[in-house]
Design a protein around this nucleic acid. Sequence first.
DNA 1: CGCAATCTTGAGGAGAGTCAAGATGCGTGG
DNA 2: CCACGCATCTTGACTCTCCTCAAGATTGCG
Lengths: 252, 252
Amino acid sequence: MPASVPTRPTTIFCASCPLRTLPAFQPVTAEQLAFIQSLKVAEVTLPARATIVAQGASADRLFTLLSGWAFRFKTLPDGRRQILNFLLPGDLLGLQAKLFDQTDHGIESLSDVVLCAFSRENIWHIFRDQPALAFDVTWLGAREEALVDDGLLSAGRRTAVERLAALLLQLHGRAEAVGLRRAGGGVALPLSQAHLADALGLSAVHLNRTMQRLRRAGIVELGGGVLRLPDMKAIRALARAVAPSMEPRPLI
Amino acid sequence: MPASVPTRPTTIFCASCPLRTLPAFQPVTAEQLAFIQSLKVAEVTLPARATIVAQGASADRLFTLLSGWAFRFKTLPDGRRQILNFLLPGDLLGLQAKLFDQTDHGIESLSDVVLCAFSRENIWHIFRDQPALAFDVTWLGAREEALVDDGLLSAGRRTAVERLAALLLQLHGRAEAVGLRRAGGGVALPLSQAHLADALGLSAVHLNRTMQRLRRAGIVELGGGVLRLPDMKAIRALARAVAPSMEPRPLI
DNA sequence: CGCAATCTTGAGGAGAGTCAAGATGCGTGG
DNA sequence: CCACGCATCTTGACTCTCCTCAAGATTGCG
């Protein structure tokens, strides 16, 4: 896994950003769009399993995930790993790393990813020149915290089945919102069971058994990188989750 | 527990805010100080165990905790509760509630608290008129997320002893930083064991037994609302925690 | 002085972890 | 085209951490 991030020249213009056409994202003014374009210093393509931000490293850049999946994680000295949350297209990466000069978590790609890179100084320009966009940065940070909050509720107080149901439900909804719906009614989900286990605070073995319970109950179909939830009502009841708000969100 | 928040006129001027004298907080310019003062619409005093923000409610205000302790939490429909993080003087409350128009977590006081209240619109004024302060708001939000990240690492991957050690270490450090040091070398800690259990994803019974292990090992002394950590080296090793950065932080 | 919340202790059980082995799938190269 | 190797998934057996239920001891406070 390369610790440094190769770059190549920008190839996608924000004005024709494929994400912006999705209803999940708020519209922006022409001026804001031009500003965002001016922030973008590079486009970065990485394969699956690449280190995007190393744990403990200082990040010199901030990214928006254009396509693909990634996750934030922490590891303890003896190797135990906790996945903090998953990152999907449109999500902001490295805000903490940027603000604190050092991260105590890493970010790794799950699939091939394309990232829009913003330089360190540019972040400050947002706050200075574009208060509405600065507000959006804060909003995206708060949304990420809300995801981690839910993960903590899961790890702390939900049973294994509830945790898995809640996570699959969340990922299904998020993937759908960014246009990852598949023909058969499912969504692409490039996670191994080991990833799910590390996200939920379970062992891989126990996660596997829990998954089979949901499968045999006809609530989850997962295989070949595709997730289908045939019984949304049942899985929502299991997760004891409230339907997440589907309001359009900012995209920077 | 009152769901609404009584107010009384402002009595403490930001210029003479007792928190600002602490080295834990960044200095501000006279102009910023005046701006912050202009944001403050009220000062709120609440007793222990009061609801500051109800779970599921929309928050019309943002607060800075001036004195006392509070915590953010989520509950499942059947009553299981997870404490997300603890709030100490200088911390910002209700940012998520403000940004999302509705919270799925509640905030409750642990001790008598005094809050500085900012109105909903004023938050926007910060972004429009004071980019440096807006940046600080984002910073405080990211810091809160870092705390939740650590809580998730604990709940997901640390053993009961490690979790407790990590939390007590964190709270000890934070309390010290805001001047809650006591004569005997400890810090005030107004938490019941039930609170610690709910923060760590443990049952109250198991937390009690875990606490006794740390006590008998001479690593923790907790009683009468005072926490002492006689063997910092041992508890840090147990928690497998890195020493948190002690850089001055923003105060709004 | 007495109630209520909190803390403590015991006993038994269940959920989840560990260890270990085998099955399945897949990309690569001979 | 098949064989090999590696990663992932699956299953079984056993263990142990942590939970639940239940009863008592302490403490603080009106």
